[in-house]
């Protein structure tokens, strides 16, 4: 069953200049993006910095108001939510951010950090909330003895577990994971990923994972969307995407993953895209990749390619796959 449905989402940031803040243009951070997440599914958005993946996450978390489009959660459009409905929504959708030391208030004790969402949504005493918080902390693999510590007393992995416990405390339906492992040591990354995977199974959670780390994405997700300059250019089941990527950008992105096996390394061809991603203030006309695409055709600079269904749950935004 579909839990979250993002329909034609747009987020433009106005660029203001001068004394009176005249709007001189827009940064089109997210431009017409649609995707959906089912219950108990892990959906990932990958792309380089500036591709708009975090902006989408912030729109879903109600930290930004989208410029246009709908975000439908459990059948209701949440873009205009207010009051009690908004509070209910916050109870069901939580988040874990990249740097745990920035996402935990340095002046609050661990138990209080995890108890805070409980106190905000339930009519319980501070003591009861703390007790529940300690249980959640134990579930994410932290000892109860840390409850009275401050975030600065913890290691990166421990702090990220606290952030996960805070997100988990209200038993949400969806957790947005914004680069949850990029700030951690490699050895700790695997532990956190395993924890997230166990939790999703145990609590029937859905994840929206935002990452630029393809190995993390491959390890944990069911389905992946690849973003480039505010668009999803390809969307497929994880295995399909990694085994047979169709979009030239996806192919280039996947070829950039380091191959640890030297004998396999020789066989692989690195696809290089020339230049840098253009600015999202004035993205290229037609297909946004065409100035850098190795397989560019005449049509690419003329019209924006449609999102073409090429297989089961596999969509590509590229003229190469348009039926002639």
């Amino acid at each position: 069953m579909t839990l979250l449905n993002v329909v034609n989402l747009k987020k433009y940031f106005p660029i203001r200049k001068g004394l009176f803040g005249r709007v001189v243009g827009y940064v089109k951070a997210v431009d017409n993006v649609s995707f959906s997440i089912s219950e108990n599914e892990v959906f990932s958005l990958v792309g380089e910095s500036g591709s708009g993946k975090t902006t989408i996450a912030r729109c879903i978390l109600k930290l930004y108001d989208p410029t246009d489009g709908k975000i439908i959660f459990e059948g209701k459009d949440i873009t205009r939510l207010k009051g009690k409905d908004l509070k209910d929504y916050h109870r069901k959708v939580q988040a874990v951010f990249q740097n745990p030391f920035l996402s935990l208030n340095p002046r609050m004790r661990i138990a209080d950090i995890v108890a805070e969402p409980l106190l905000a949504h339930m009519k319980i005493s501070r003591n009861e909330a703390r007790k529940t918080a300690i249980k959640v902390l134990e579930r994410v693999g932290l000892s109860a003895s840390l409850a009275r510590r401050f975030p600065s007393d913890l290691s990166g992995g421990q702090a990220q577990r606290v952030a996960i416990a805070r997100a988990l405390a209200l038993k949400p339906k969806l957790i947005v994971l914004d680069e949850p492992t990029s700030a951690l040591d490699v050895s700790v990354q695997a532990q956190i990923l395993n924890l997230l995977e166990d939790l999703s199974r145990e609590y029937k959670l859905s994840y929206l994972l935002i990452s630029h780390d393809l190995s993390v994405v491959r390890y944990i997700s069911d389905r992946v969307g690849v973003m480039y300059l505010g668009n999803i250019v390809e969307e497929a089941l994880t295995e399909v995407l990694f085994e047979s990527p169709l979009h030239p950008y996806t192919q280039a992105l996947l070829s950039a993953v380091p191959e640890p096996d030297p004998s396999l390394k020789k066989l692989r061809k690195r696809i290089m895209l020339p230049g840098e991603p253009p600015s999202s203030i004035s993205p290229p006309k037609g297909c946004r990749l065409h100035p850098r695409c190795p397989r560019v055709m005449d049509v690419c600079s003329k019209g924006e390619p449609p999102l073409i269904e090429v297989g089961e749950a596999h969509k590509v935004k590229c003229w190469l796959y348009a039926k002639k």
């Binding site: 978390l61 109600k62 916050h90 996402s103 905000a120």
Partner: peptide, 8 residues
């Protein structure tokens, strides 16, 4: 941001 997401 985290406090906002909690719904405070």
């Amino acid at each position: 941001d985290a406090a906002k997401i909690i719904g405070l």
